[in-house]
């Protein structure tokens, strides 16, 4: 069952505050968070969050099409994801 629309998206309120501060300061520091349950809001786009996965923080650079997902989806709690030989990493 989907969440009722009238409640609005769920976000831990301290995250909102932290995001605003980061926005205002202009410094693109990583915002550490344990709140994997929070929805990614449009105002988070462009910020980097360190999302805890029970072991370490996974940096998540929020892009537009992530809006509406939860932070936890980008920070897997189990490890093996295969290996690749010629895979490239892009420094964005």
């Amino acid at each position: 069952m989907a969440r009722s629309v009238w409640k609005g998206p769920f976000v831990d309120s301290y995250l909102l505050k932290k995001a605003e501060v980061a926005r205002a300061s202009g410094r693109n520091d990583v915002i550490k968070t344990w709140s994997r349950r929070s929805t990614i809001l449009p105002q988070f786009v462009g910020l980097t969050f360190g999302v805890y996965n029970g072991h370490k923080f996974i940096p998540v650079l929020v892009t537009e099409n992530m809006v509406g997902q939860k932070f936890g989806e980008f920070s897997p709690t189990r490890s093996y994801f295969g290996h690749q030989a010629d895979r490239k990493a892009r420094r964005g």
Binding site: N65, M66, Q69, G72, E73, F74, P76, F81
Partner: peptide, 12 residues
């Protein structure tokens, strides 16, 4: 498809 392109847990 959007989920899959995103590479998030759901997509995987």
């Amino acid at each position: 498809k959007r989920y899959m392109d995103l590479g998030s847990y759901r997509g995987v």
